[in-house]
Structures are given as C-alpha cells and as structure tokens.
Design a protein around this nucleic acid. Sequence first.
RNA 1: GGAGAGGUGGCAGAGUGGUUGAAUGUACCUGACUCGAAAUCAGGCAUACACGCAAGUGUAUCGAGGGUUCGAAUCCCUCCCUCUCCGCCA
Length: 425
Amino acid sequence: MLDIQYLRNDLDAAAQRLASRNYAFDKASFAELEAQRKEVQTRTQDLQAKRNNTSKQIGIAKSKGEDTSAILAEVATLGDELKAAEEQLAVIQSQMQAFLQNIPNLPHESVPVGKSEADNIEVRKWGTPRSFDFEIKDHTDVGAPLGLDFDTGAKLSGARFTFMRGQIAKLHRALAQFMLDTQTEEHSYIECYTPYMVNAETLRGTGQLPKFEEDLFSLDHNESKLYLIPTSEVTLTNIVRDEIVPLESLPIKLTAHTPCFRSEAGSYGKDTKGMIRQHQFDKVEMVQIVHPEKSYAALEEMVGHAEAILQKLRLPYRVVSLCTGDMGFGAAKTYDLEVWLPAQNTYREISSVSNCEAFQARRMQARFRNEAGKPELLHTLNGSGLAVGRTLVAVLENYQNADGSVTIPEILRPYMKGLEQLKAS
RNA sequence: GGAGAGGUGGCAGAGUGGUUGAAUGUACCUGACUCGAAAUCAGGCAUACACGCAAGUGUAUCGAGGGUUCGAAUCCCUCCCUCUCCGCCA
C-alpha cells in the first residue's frame, strides 16, 4: 500500500511513476473520493464532538441532581444525523481502502523502465554452460527412468502435479536440506517452521489479497476460510504484523523450507510439460525485515545469498534486474536469478529477490521504534534461496550423462550418503 | 466434540452506565539530590487519523463486529483467540 499522504501531496508524480509499470492511476476518481472523504469526515467528527460534549454535560447535571430534560431535547435529533454521517464515512473509507489496496508499489529510481520481460537488464553472468557431446534430453526425459513421474501426479491430483520416488525424491530432499543449511549456517538466517494455511488478513499483509485471490488455493473449514500459502514469504513476513519491534532486534533474518501452492491461473499453455510450473512446489525462502535506510544494501546481500546456492551447485546463471513493467505487485525493485537450462537452451527464473520497502509494512502496520523513540514503518524483503523443484530440473539437465545417469553435484553428496550418480535401477 | 474460566496500556492489575484514554504498581525517559551510582523526590511516558502554515484543536481505539442509550471498558447479541478438565487423535 502506498502512503496516502504522498498521493495527496504529489498526485501527478505518483501517477507518473505508476504509469511506468503499466498501472493507469485514476487521478479523477481519487481526487473525487478524497474530496468526499474530507467533507464527510470533518462533518462526522464535528457531530461526534458535539455529542460527546453534550453527553458530558448531562452527566455533570445529573450528578448535581439538576433537570436534564432541556439538554436531552436539544440532542434528540443529533443521533440520526450522526448515524447517517458515520455510515456515509464508513462507505467512503472502505472505498478508499479498496482503491489503495489495489495500487502496486512505486518502482525505485534505479529500476529500468520497460514494458515486459524483454526490457529486463542483465546485470551479470556466472559460469559457462557446459557443452555436450551427445544428444541432450530435457529434465522430464532424464528424470523419468530415475523416478520422476508426472503420470502418477496427474492421476492423483491432475495436471501440474509431480510424484517422485526413489533416488530422485531423495535428491529433491537433499537440495532443500542443503539450501536451508547454507542460509542458516553461512548467512545467519533463523530457520523457521511455519503454517501452510493462513487467513485472509495475513495474505492482505503481504499483498496477495485482495487483488490476486484467483492465484491462490483456498479451503473452507467450518465457517472459516483458509488459504494455502503461495510462498513462505507470506508467513515469515507477517510475523511482524501489528508489531512495533525494538530497534536492536533489526535486521530480522528468517528462512523456511515449505511447499508453495499456486493455482497458476492465467498461465494456461505455459510450461505445461515438466516440473517448471507446478501447483505445488517446494521453496527455501529468505525474508529480511530491516531499517528503511538499510533495505537496498540488504537487497544486494540477499541476491548474493541466493547466488551462493547456484555457485556451490556449479550451475551457470545470470542476474537480471526486472524492468518496471515486469515487477511483481509489491516490489519496489526486483532481481531475478535465471539458471541455465541446456534443453531449453536458455536461462530460466529460479529465484526472485525483492525489496518491498514499506509497501507491505504499511499494510501490516509493521513498525520499529526509531532512534527518536517514534514508531516508523519497517522495510521488508524476500527472496527465494532457491525454488527447489526448478533447482532439481537444473541439476538433472546440466549434470546429465550420455548413458542416462546424472552426476550428483559434489556439494550434495554428503546429503546423499556419498552417492555420486543417479542411475536407473 | 463436551464442560468451565478468561481476553484492559511494554508488563502486572483496578475499574459493572456519566467530566475514564482509562486508578495503582512496575518498566522506561527527564530533572533534583550525589564525586558518581543506588535509594528518594518531582515531572513525563499509547497508537492511528482529521483539520491547521503553525501553535494547537478534534475524532477513534479497553480481543473483533453489531445492538441498546443523550452517554458503553462497563449492559445485550454474534464471532475470534487463550487457558483448565474430559473425550478423540499423529
């Protein structure tokens, strides 16, 4: 959510910055709503003040044993008028709230301006794609003999679900363990275990609701509705919702390995083959909750924490700075890490690291007590470190051998009881 | 699932319709005393929002929402959460 004061004071600048990310800010509606709000709120508060004042006088008069019928007659009509004003104000405020909740974050000035993915800027590349002296297979063909089974996934649940058995299931687990160990032991994140189902309030906090309900899976349980988390950014970030944390506790660095559930509405026909785009996938997430002045330093640091995983796995990748048109709803700046997939002969997203500045914090009312002792909004950042399923894809494709086996990256071998290769049994 | 108890400021804890945003204690901040500290004394100490150039004024908030009333922390209804006991259960 944006700062409404900023919108009031600098409407044109805000609209212009939002236009760069393909968001058409409706200035006329906002101005109209704001004018109504001002009039009705002022009137409501005046009426409330009058009521409070009168009631107080009745109290005083009664305690003195005086007659109050004159004052009572005077306020007889006040009630209806006040009630009408309050109701009108509530309607306007919820309209304003809905309006604000649907505005995306302002892009940071360093973000390249662009319309789509094609305008993203490559920041750096790491590693050299391996050259193969045999006909390479994609991960579905490499994985099938090793226990990667989409047919069974489809039988149990439908399209976009995977079933893994044997060594490949174990490799998947090894990847997650390795990532979690690296983020906790080398980058000092605190390991967390979080709920996989959350309420609507939590999703509003990080910005998935109200705008992106169709991307989520939900469950009806008795009277209450819960949603499956689309990422543990949701649970890790919301721990500070409605909190004022002490300055000394910053930065808060959290990580968790959780499944993520996404309906992938609107991506029909995209990546239908294989496990690139699934309804359920595992991810190791990093979240930092920081002092506003430190958030851009933290962003760079977190990109490094995600890169460390790919480097240790010796997987070639590139770092991309997303342009204004390609960034997610809550992000002020985002870097994507794209891993080399030889079968697709291209780099594919495997991690996304974003600084949301105060966008989520304002929705969550997540604050810290600043140097002056005053509450101030925090900045929140999140990033994948990494998406486990896609990392498995990258390992299968990059480490495949002519005989159909897959070499296990050295860093993972301790997690595989020293096993060096995956082979069909 | 059944029975009961409870949710008030950072914490503890008063408050069952009227000058209550809320006693008191504690924590914290400032000042006095002191060489300094402790103790003691005095004062301060919630958040959000609106109007205003500002000083300031006002509004809202006692788990959440609704109701009764001129007036609700206090009465009524619904919901949420926590705790205790019983049952079931990984």
